[in-house]
Simulated scan of single mutants.
Amino acid sequence: MFEEIYSPVQKINLAPFNNLFVKRDDLIDPYISGNKWRKLKHILTKAKTENKTHLVTFGGAYSNHLVATAAAAARTGFTSTAFVRGEEVKNEMLLLCHLFGMKLIFVDRESYRDKNLLFEKHFSDDADAYFIDEGGASPEAIIGCAEIIDELTTTYDHVFCAAGTGTTAAGLLAGIQKHHLKTKLHIIPVLKGGSFIADEIANYVALSQHLQLHLDYHFGGYAKTTDKFISFIKDFIASTGLLVDPVYTAKMFFAIIDLQKQGVIKKEEKILAIHTGGLLGMFGMKDKF
């Protein structure tokens, strides 16, 4: 379904680190970016093998997943529909979805909680429809995200990744275990009360001593921020030339720097940060900058 693409690993200069590298999954595609491409590639292959032609998924009004699904559908011959959480709005992300041919159905937040019911209500009589969970969470997505570890040509002391649902984290953990690495996997939940991420990971892969969750870098919750954090993002981008978003990747880099100050990781250790893309989501917080 998708052409195989291997994102580069680049070293970034950020004091005081000597060996800080970034897996640039954000460079995979401008619209099917980062872990979205990883998650969708095997999902769409499965949908095709089941002779489905209509992708149905879920997300918020600034969801990178919706844009990625719409773009992937358009490129691979599927039609697409998304249930969008909340009142009807227009923004840059939904414009892209519309241009890629995605039909949008806005639903109230209470109805949105039961995604299977929404799918059955609207598409039970559509034999071509294929259910894709919010964010692409699925066993197929785990396989795709595990391939990040498969692609690495060297080993690292630490791998860092921001997490919303835990799907990418589960894939990374599965890859580390598959290759019998000693690498520590540090997951930065971006939601307040992110300890549930461990349970989500455990739905797909056995937890192990490789995994460490750091729960104190959510800055108030998903899509929440502070003046201090916005200042950090501006300084980080200007000093490294690496664009990060305030919802996911910036929280990860803030955590890396803070954990080094705490002595959890050492500046000379070899560290890999997974840049999961999603930069278009910055439009949803443009007023903060």
Rank of each mutant, 00 (worst) to 15 (best):
G193R: 04
L213A: 02
K184D: 12
L172K: 07
D150G: 09
N91V: 01
H122K: 12
L118G: 11
A206W: 08
K182S: 14
A137M: 12
E110A: 13
D108M: 05
M93T: 12
F196V: 07
H180V: 14
Y222G: 03
H122G: 01
D128M: 08
H122F: 13
D227F: 08
F160R: 02
I148K: 05
C97T: 01
N203R: 15
N116W: 14
F123E: 00
L211C: 07
T155F: 05
T225P: 00
Q209R: 11
G136M: 09
N116D: 15
K90M: 08
L104T: 00
T153W: 00
A127Y: 00
L96Y: 01
L172N: 07
L173E: 13
I187F: 08
H98G: 00
D216I: 13
N203K: 15
G164L: 07
T168Q: 03
G164Y: 06
L99I: 02
T154D: 03
C161A: 09
D216M: 10
F196A: 08
L207E: 10
G144T: 12
T225Q: 04
H218K: 06
G193P: 06
F196L: 07
Q209L: 12
L185G: 05
Y217P: 02
K115R: 15
Y112V: 07
T183G: 12
Q212D: 10
F106E: 02
S111L: 14
S138W: 10
T167F: 03
L117H: 14
I187Y: 06
V205F: 11
N203P: 05
G144A: 10
H98R: 08
Y204I: 11
H122W: 04
H210R: 08
I197W: 05
D108T: 04
A169C: 07
K90A: 06
S195W: 07
L173K: 13
F219V: 00
T165M: 03
T226R: 03
D227S: 14
H180A: 15
S208L: 11
I143N: 04
F219R: 02
H214K: 11
D216K: 15
G166N: 08
A223F: 00
H214I: 10
